[in-house]
Each structure stands twice: as structure tokens, then as C-alpha cells.
Design a protein around this nucleic acid. Structure first.
Lengths: 187, 187
DNA sequence: GAGAACTTGTTACAGCCGTAACAATATTCA
DNA sequence: TGAATATTGTTACGGCTGTAACAAGTTCTC
């Protein structure tokens, strides 16, 4: 599977000869992988790989960047902030609803709410009509935190997307939107 | 911040009146949030929010889907598979290189390789020229596993992206690519 | 050559994630 | 009404993730 050159340890990625030489390591790898997949017999679907790889890589970089640069310094995490933000817009909400709209499991919500509650940013309240249920609500401190973090996160997102023009950003959003709307049903 | 209606527990998301009524809960929330942000004073950047939200949501759904549907049933994880796949293309590689191209920390690579090694899918080998270094290499079993899982993952990715035409997929890849290439330098 | 500075891989820790199992409560339907 | 079924939130568990600290080895610099 591997050419002889690949076996030298510490070599890093061999970029295809036509790739720009100053690409970051992850994109050099992606270009190399694309070429290797196309050269297989039978050829693999290099397009599907590239699309999925770029999508996941971008999301991962963006998540890590927002988390380390914005939220951790404020004593938050990105999942914690996202929950806080939903509570800000929606008001007191049951964990099961938060799980639905966040594509998280109920237990993940439980954990995240525990962390927020420890930090004094959110609180649980019983629901009189349903003995099983609980609603999670923002505290005053939580609302202040979400306002400040939201402003910073928006600024950082704008930096990430500044390389695209307005029309391109809209096209990108529309394409992502279509995939989300037409997502495979058996999820 | 919240209208009176939002305070009814267990209500779920109030979609904007013009949103299609059969949207999944996460997209109903996105449409509602977009409207609320635009209505703030001063108005928040609803475009940046929507783009970032759709990007992260799609990535998260895709990751969860691939993980639960393809890799977990095979005794793998998605990060484990991605490492195996890189080793398949690159041959024996140092953890530090894997961390670079994967946007992971070195300790995350250590953990993932530990799991792969426990499963007999990869192994560590010392590097004679450098007493600190190690290379991670696929075992025969690991190569068989990555071949099989790759075929399945490609099929599933094709299902996810089937709602777009060839030209749309290429436009999407190109847009994601641009953001990755022009990513903020101070990462 | 010797010491400083750096690199590499690992460990400990805390947070996040899903699955599975569970108790408590609601709902359904016979 | 009473029993079967479903829903809700929580816990235990294992895996992934980053940060920080660390030992061991390498490279740089004088």
C-alpha cells in the first residue's frame, strides 16, 4: 500500500507535485489522499472523501478555536455556551427538548447542565404538572455570561468567514441547509 | 428576553410563522433563533450565526451517524478509523505527524493509538535514529479493518450528499476549502 | 565538549459524548 | 380501574479531547 518513501519515519506527508507548496499540513494530507484514492483500482470516490474531510476538518478547527480562544478563558465550554444560548432565546426549557434540538443525548444534557449549575449559570426547576420533568433556566449571572460570550463568538465567526463574500456565504449556508433538510431519514 | 409563551415548560421551539411546518427540531430552532437575533437592538449578525450553526450541526450529525452506524458496530470509533485510514495511506507515521495533520493534540493521538493497539489494529515501533520517537503502523488485521470500513463509510457519505448535484457538491467543497486555506493565522 | 533550549511521547486530570440500565412518573388501552 | 407501555431524568461506564507537567532524548550555542 505504501511507497518506499513513506516508510521513513518523521517524513510527514508527501504532497502531490502540483499542490501549492505552502499548504498547512492537514490540507497537504487531503490533497495527497485525494490523489491516492483516485489512483486506486477500482478508483475510490475521491470527491466524497474530500467533501466529508473538509467539512469535518473545518468544523473541528472552528470548534477548537472557539472553545480555546473564547469560552474556556471565560470559564465556559462550547457545549455549555450553546446550551446557555438556547436557554437565552427559549427561556426555561426541559432537558429532553434541549437534547432534541441539540442532537445530543439526554445524558449529555444532564452532564452539561450539571456543569452549568456548578458554575451558577443555570438552575433546575421542578415542573408542577409533571413529576418527572424539570426545566433548566438561566440565572442572572448566566444571562450576563451568555451575552458577553455571544458577542465575542460572533466577532470570531466573522473572522473565519471573512474570506468569503456575502453571496458566497449565503450560497454556503444554503448548501449546508439543503443537506440538513434532506438528511438520511434513518438517523 | 423571553416572550411569555416561551416560559411554558415542555413547549419546545416556537417556529417563525413562515417556516415550513415539518422541519426537524434543530432546523426549527435555527429558523427561530435567526429571527430573534435579527430582531434584537442592535440587531445581531444572524447570517454569521446561521452559517456557523448549520456547519457545526451538519458536522455533528454526520460524525454521530458514521460513528454509530458504521464504526461502532465494527468495534471501531470514528477517530480511530480516521487514524487507521491515515496510516493506510501514509504508512508508518510518528504520532507528532498524525497530530499535525489531524488537528489533534499529541496526547489525544497517544490515547487513540492505545485503543487501536489494544484492539490489535495498530502497533508502535521504535525509531532507531531517534530515541524519543515512535512510529505507529497498521497490523494486517488493521489494514483489513480499514479497507472494509472505508468502503462502508464512502457509501454512507454518498447518501448524505446525494441531495446535491455534482456541480453543487464541487461548489460546496470549494467554499469549505477556501475557508480552510484562509483560516485565521493565530490558531 | 557542556549546558541551554527544544522536541517527543506519556501521564493525570477534568469535561464532553453515547449507550445501557434504572427508578419515578404518565399515558394508553383494555 | 388496573395493567402494560412510554417518557423523563439520572447514573455508571468507556472512549475522545485538551491542558499541564514530566522524563527522556536531541539539537543548538557558546
Amino acid at each position: 500500500m505504501s511507497s518506499e518513501r513513506d516508510n521513513r519515519p518523521g517524513l510527514g506527508v508527501n504532497p502531490p507535485p502540483d499542490a501549492p507548496p505552502d499548504l498547512p499540513p492537514d490540507l497537504r494530507y487531503a490533497a495527497y489522499a485525494r490523489e491516492r484514492l483516485a489512483a486506486m483500482s477500482p478508483p475510490a470516490d475521491a470527491e466524497a472523501f474530500t467533501l466529508a474531510y473538509h467539512l469535518l476538518q473545518l468544523a473541528s478547527l472552528l470548534v477548537t478555536d472557539l472553545e480555546t480562544r473564547i469560552h474556556r478563558p471565560r470559564g465556559l465550554t462550547l457545549p455549555g455556551f450553546r446550551l446557555l444560548f438556547k436557554l437565552w432565546l427559549l427561556g426555561p426549557t426541559q432537558p429532553v427538548r434541549l437534547a432534541e434540538i441539540s442532537a445530543m443525548s439526554r445524558s449529555a444534557v444532564t452532564n452539561a447542565v450539571n456543569t452549568l449549575e456548578r458554575g451558577g449559570l443555570a438552575e433546575r426547576r421542578p415542573v408542577p404538572e409533571d413529576g418527572r420533568a424539570v426545566v433548566v433556566a438561566l440565572t442572572a449571572e448566566g444571562e450576563a455570561a451568555v451575552r458577553a460570550a455571544f458577542a465575542e463568538q460572533t466577532r470570531r465567526e466573522q473572522e473565519w468567514f471573512a474570506c468569503l463574500g456575502q453571496a458566497e456565504r449565503e450560497r454556503l449556508t444554503a448548501l449546508l441547509s439543503r443537506i440538513l433538510r434532506d438528511r438520511p431519514a434513518d438517523l
